[in-house]
C-alpha cells in the first residue's frame, strides 16, 4: 500500500515536472496569455481586460471588473459555493427533530 502511494506521488511529480519543463518562461511578455492577439486571431482575455476595464465600468481595479462583470457568473458560482457550504453545515451538524432509526 505504501509503495503504491509512493508511486502515485512520483507519478504526479513526474507529470508536473514533465509539464513544467515545457511551460513558457514565467513573466515572458511573448507568452500567449499576455499577447495582444492569440494564434487564431481571437481576443486575448488578459490583454482585453487591462485595456478596456476602465472604459467599460469606470473602475480602476481591473480585478474587480473582471470578477464583477466580465466573469460575473463565475463569481456568482463562487457565492453559491460558499452558500452551499453554509447549507451543508446546517444539514450535517444541526440536530434533526427526531433521532434517526439505527
Amino acid at each position: 500500500m505504501k509503495a503504491l502511494k509512493i508511486l502515485i506521488l512520483l507519478f504526479f511529480a513526474g507529470i508536473m515536472i514533465f509539464a513544467a519543463s515545457d511551460l513558457p518562461n514565467r513573466g515572458d511578455q511573448e507568452n500567449l496569455m499576455h499577447a495582444e492577439e492569440s494564434i487564431t486571431g481571437t481576443v486575448v482575455k488578459g490583454t482585453y481586460f487591462i485595456q478596456n476595464a476602465y472604459r467599460d465600468a469606470r473602475t480602476p481595479n481591473m480585478v474587480t471588473v473582471v470578477l464583477g462583470d466580465y466573469r460575473s457568473i463565475d463569481t456568482f458560482g463562487e457565492q453559491v459555493v460558499i452558500y452551499t457550504a453554509g447549507l451543508i453545515t446546517l444539514l450535517i451538524l444541526r440536530k434533526g427533530r427526531r433521532r434517526m432509526t439505527p
Binding site: I15, M16, F18, A19, A20, S21, D22, L23, P24, N31, L32, M33, H34, A35, S38, I39, T40, T42, V44, K45, G46
Partner: peptide, 28 residues
C-alpha cells in the same frame, strides 16, 4: 491557460492543434 491564453473551450480547441506535441498540453 498558460500555453494558450484562453479558457473558452471553443476558442481553445481551435488553438490546441497548433501546439501539437507540447509537453504541457499533454500533461494538462
Amino acid at each position: 491557460y498558460t500555453v494558450t491564453g484562453t479558457l473558452n473551450i471553443i476558442d481553445m480547441s481551435a488553438m490546441l492543434p497548433m501546439l501539437y506535441e507540447s509537453n504541457a498540453v499533454f500533461a494538462a
